[in-house]
């Protein structure tokens, strides 16, 4: 079974899903992430799904579960890079991904987490204000 790698960047865990995941791989990712959050003490999780050409209800549920678990572990989860066709399909499927924060790309996802932590008065985490206007590719 393939495993999805989890990268640590500063205070953030970055997961970039590059393969067409089997359900087992998805469940394994969920477990691996929970362990890494605890082990690293990170406060943010970014799941990049740019490479995913579909998200079905199983993967959708996995994303929701990851968001809930990380919230319990004091980490904010942002799902980034969802393709338009995937988003349209999810709406039609009836999956609303409640409780999941989303952003257009990794950079905006980082800003979102930074803003969130800043709101909670967590000063150690600040990417500064200038990242916002440089997001255009």
């Amino acid at each position: 079974m393939e495993r999805v790698p989890i990268l640590k960047i500063g205070d953030i865990l970055l997961v970039s899903i590059q393969v067409d995941m089997s359900d087992q791989t998805a469940v394994a990712l969920q477990e691996d992430l929970a362990e890494r959050i605890v082990a690293t003490g990170c406060h943010g999780v970014i799941i990049d799904i740019t490479a995913l050409d579909i998200v079905d209800s199983f993967v959708g549920r996995m994303l929701s579960t990851i968001a809930s678990i990380s919230r319990v572990l004091d980490a904010e989860t942002v799902v980034v890079g969802m393709r338009p066709a995937v988003a349209i399909t999810l709406v039609e499927l009836g999956l609303s991904l409640n409780g999941i924060r989303t952003a257009l790309n990794v950079e905006r996802g980082m800003e979102l987490i930074a803003a969130e932590r800043a709101d909670q008065g967590d000063d150690e985490f600040d990417y500064g204000p200038d990242t916002e206007l440089t997001a255009s590719p």
């Binding site: 359900d23 579909i54 079905d56 399909t89 499927l93």
Partner: peptide, 17 residues
Amino acid sequence: SLVDQTKVVTAASELAR
């Protein structure tokens, strides 16, 4: 179309599961 491909692949994924 790309959107229709995505829809039918997603439906197939649900039903195959």
